[in-house]
């Protein structure tokens, strides 16, 4: 799958989740919500440690383009949190959050595709977001 397709898939996921839950979430929580939603499927397949390793690598890749992603960090128990004190937090607004969420999800899916291939990755995505299946 080319990067354009991965970006569009990520955009679709973020838009769906944004529409569904954004009203009830604070800005940065959208990113955390999407990550939490992927967590059970990936952990079931490969374990929590693998999920954390994948997400931390995806975050490192995505931070180059996503201004607000610098404010995300892992706690000692492996939970991803948003640090409001981090300098990157000053860029936070609904637009940047959505844009950066797309960048992070695209990086995560791109990494997964690189490691286990497009077909298996899409199967996992479809399990989390069945509505994507039609596309």
């Amino acid at each position: 799958m080319d990067p354009g397709h991965v970006d569009r898939l990520a955009l679709r996921i973020v838009e769906d989740e944004g529409t569904r839950v954004a009203a009830s979430l604070h800005d940065a929580d959208l990113i955390l919500h999407i990550c939490d939603k992927m967590h059970p499927s990936i952990s079931r397949l490969a374990g929590s440690l693998s999920y954390r390793a994948l997400l931390s690598r995806a975050l490192a890749i995505a931070r180059v383009r996503g201004k607000t992603l610098g404010a995300l960090r892992f706690e000692s128990d492996g939970k991803l949190i948003f640090d409001p004190e981090h300098p990157a937090a000053e860029f936070l607004n609904p637009d940047t959050v959505r844009k950066d969420a797309v960048i992070l999800v695209a990086a995560f899916l791109g990494l997964l595709m690189k490691l286990i291939g497009d077909v298996v990755t899409v199967r996992i995505v479809c399990q989390v977001w069945p509505e994507v299946k039609a596309e």
Partner: peptide, 13 residues
């Protein structure tokens, strides 16, 4: 066959 993953083949850690 990757299409079988999560359809007829389930990997559980």
């Amino acid at each position: 066959d990757g299409r079988k993953v999560n359809e007829s083949i389930f990997f559980i850690n």
